[in-house]
Write a protein that binds this DNA or RNA. Structure first.
Length: 89
DNA sequence: CGTATGACGTGCA
DNA sequence: GTGCACGCCATAC
């Protein structure tokens, strides 16, 4: 599939996809890994549009310690994090 | 091409 | 400690 994913988007998805089980990152951290420490806003946007099941976006949480949201249902995100015993930042 | 939105973050009252 | 408002970036329409 030739997706014209922008560099930023590709990097964000790649960074999230590389998150090991039981580990979580904040939107800001992901944004930094993507190359823009101030694009955490875009990160949330991209993840919200990204429905790829291959992207464990549920491992991305807010800096406040809250989960934020999940395109498949916040409850599902909580369930997944709990099942993986994700480390809260 | 331009506008509006968004799963955020920080600052200030 | 809590609540409100603004600012920031990239994407999608």
């Amino acid at each position: 599939m030739k997706r014209k994913l922008t560099n930023f988007r590709q990097k964000v998805l790649d960074a999230v996809a590389k998150i090991p089980s039981g580990h979580v990152l904040t939107y800001k951290q992901v944004a930094i890994l993507a190359g823009s420490s101030r694009a955490y806003r875009a990160v949330g946007n991209i993840l919200s549009r990204n429905r790829s099941k291959k992207i464990p976006c549920h491992r991305v949480v807010r800096s406040d310690g809250k989960l934020g949201g999940y395109n498949r249902g916040i409850e599902e995100k909580i369930k997944l994090l709990k099942a993986e015993k994700s480390i809260l930042i």
